[in-house]
Write a protein that binds this DNA or RNA. Structure first.
Lengths: 138, 138
DNA sequence: TGAAGCAATTAGACAGAGTCCAATTCCCAT
DNA sequence: ATGGGAATTGGACTCTGTCTAATTGCTTCA
């Protein structure tokens, strides 16, 4: 019942439930991210969005991605020193990063267990834990 | 016996054993990183190096940090989307990153155990695993 | 219909990290 | 001293991302 294809209408609803006013451009950007289920850079998002439709400006792409981020619609993945990737998958999971190709793959968190981490210092709370496995073709 | 203070002489040796011709500038940069045992950005390294001594150019700082990296003298830590940190500690360990202050702290790897990771796809080898715990003041 | 008001979008200037290149300097062996 | 290869340098350049002031567009209310 919940599994819906990412039509423009469904995406508009998704935005609304996250407290985001759906607009033309925002829906296109959401569509770029959610329809292909990949990790995209801001630049890639802009290319995809402007491929077939009228223009969306760089400023809007960045504004929108940061808005989505704030509202918890997407996540940020920091693995490449030169650019941020945006991840439409907000379920807890980790990443494998191919240093050669720059390709980023999900690792399901379900079975992963991390033990032996030290106590956090007092006065701080965990915001999240990233695990990144860097790989290279043999 | 092996624990030596980071004098210029010791650092020159350290560079040589890693196949790096020690020069004036390289030694100063190594000194900046190893004497204080912190995570520094390229910019911070340049500031420190130029504080007391004659000029070292931006190009040299970047050249040298990348050279050290290549030769396994230091590690790269990618947690901040806007800049890379360089870590003089090459022992296996993980990191805690304070999103508020930008401070980066080591977590000893000794006791940390990660289980349940899936098999790597064939044809790739692990280059390393990073664990980053993002924290925020409560 | 239309005017007001607010939110979203935009172009383009800007900022900062990092790279590149051609010219110079340094160091060392002869 | 001198020649040669490596290291360094300034400065221009690229790229990602931000900022700002102006414009557009949407909604509401008359």
């Amino acid at each position: 019942m919940e599994s819906s294809p990412y039509t423009r209408n469904n995406l508009a609803d998704k935005l609304r439930t996250h407290g985001i006013t759906p607009t033309h451009q925002r829906i296109e950007i959401a569509h770029a991210l959610f329809s292909r289920c990949e990790h995209l850079s801001a630049d890639q998002v802009m290319t995809i969005v402007n491929e077939r439709h009228s223009e969306t400006s760089k400023a809007t792409v960045y504004n929108t991605l940061n808005l989505f981020l704030e509202k918890g619609l997407i996540r940020e993945v920091i693995v490449d020193p030169s650019k941020v990737f945006y991840d439409p998958n907000t379920e807890p999971h980790y990443h494998m990063y191919d240093l050669e190709s720059g390709r980023l793959t999900d690792i399901a968190a379900a079975d992963v267990r991390v033990t032996g981490l030290p106590q956090l210092p007092p006065g701080v709370v965990t915001e999240g834990m990233d695990i990144i496995i860097r790989v290279r073709p043999a």
